[in-house]
């Protein structure tokens, strides 16, 4: 697979910030993920080619980090924290609600392809727990009602 010109250009521009092209690997994977929603094996190979990093090595790196996606995702990605602070403030109930309302399972995608759900470790919103990220937006102080109201804004 060839990376799109836009993706390749963005990677090349990021590359200039680093003394060593390899340092640009994580940022490059982000660029791909932003464009495609996930990182396909062919994209890993292409990124490796661009940065002179062997494909297997790219895969080893990409699979180490939990925020890289290795399968296509729904239109919106819900990253819901269930770590201790969120847990004691009721995050588990929220997981049930998402399942009931959208048919979402952790690491799954709703049947309509609208949402994907990933359970997160602490996302740094413990003072306003429970919390989630939808795409790149923080939503905090969630409860059984406002979580649905919030998500309804994402079509």
């Amino acid at each position: 697979m060839k990376l799109s010109d836009k993706v390749a250009a963005e990677i090349n521009s990021i590359k200039s910030r680093y003394q060593d092209p390899r340092s640009c690997l994580l940022p490059s994977l982000y660029v791909v993920q932003k464009a495609d929603g996930w990182i396909a094996p062919e994209a890993m190979a292409a990124v490796g080619e661009l940065l002179n990093v062997p494909g297997a090595t790219v895969k080893g790196v990409a699979t180490f980090y939990s925020m890289f996606r290795h399968k296509p995702m729904g239109r919106h990605l819900i990253q819901l924290c269930t770590n201790v602070a969120c847990l004691v403030m009721g995050a588990e109930e929220l997981v049930d609600i998402l399942k009931g309302k959208y048919g979402l399972e952790p690491n799954g995608t709703s049947p309509d392809g609208r949402f994907s759900l990933v359970i997160m470790e602490c996302i740094g919103a413990c003072g306003t727990a429970p919390a989630m990220l939808v795409d790149t937006d923080f939503h905090e102080n969630l409860n059984e009602k406002n979580i649905i109201d919030t998500l309804e804004n994402y079509k």
Partner: peptide, 12 residues
């Protein structure tokens, strides 16, 4: 002095 942001990807 040059400064830039490098984003991690979910690894404590």
């Amino acid at each position: 002095f040059d400064l830039c942001v490098h984003q991690g990807a979910g690894a404590y």
